[in-house]
């Protein structure tokens, strides 16, 4: 079994999962950003009635909102959030996470438990940590830096 087989068969639960940051509908962008900063997270899931995810807000949406002035820090988050929330099951293979993040241009994906409830997030950071932890021996024994290839022929 190689690394590719591991990625094809091991479930997302093998990655480090982080509890998601959920914020209620109606919370201001300012408070959401403060929560994201405090939790060191790049995204928040917007919940209705405390349990029903209706969208997400992330760093990119904040940047576009500020530059394009589509909202202010005092706007309700549900006015500027994205309602396209992609989820994967904790039992889906890691390969599906890679392909989904690539196709949907995402860095983070919401992970659902056995009951279909969104309970955590995982993404590129956790995927790269997994890959580094599972590097085969051939990768681990390589030198840290390559020998620089010459960009021009030597003279004479």
């Amino acid at each position: 079994m190689g690394l590719r087989d591991d990625i094809l068969h091991e479930p997302i639960s093998e990655l480090a999962l982080k509890p998601l940051l959920s914020v209620p509908v109606g919370m201001t962008v300012r408070r959401v950003v403060t929560a994201m900063r405090r939790r060191k997270m790049g995204s928040a899931v917007v919940m209705e009635d405390g349990a029903n995810p209706v969208g997400f807000f992330n760093e990119r949406l904040l940047m576009h909102m500020l530059v394009n002035e589509t909202g202010t820090l005092d706007s309700p988050v549900d006015q500027v959030m994205s309602d396209e929330l992609i989820t994967l099951s904790v039992h889906d293979p890691i390969a599906k996470l890679i392909v989904t993040m690539q196709e949907r241009k995402l860095r983070w994906i919401c992970v659902t438990d056995d009951a279909g409830r969104a309970h955590s997030i995982t993404g590129c950071k956790n995927l790269f940590e997994y890959l580094v932890d599972h590097f085969p021996r051939h990768v681990k024994v390589r030198p840290l830096r390559s020998i620089m290839a010459m960009e021009q022929r030597e003279g004479a």
Binding site: L8, I86, D92, K96, I98, V99
Partner: peptide, 11 residues
Amino acid sequence: LSGYFADVASA
């Protein structure tokens, strides 16, 4: 990375 998993369906 996804080039090595082209046969896997996305969500």
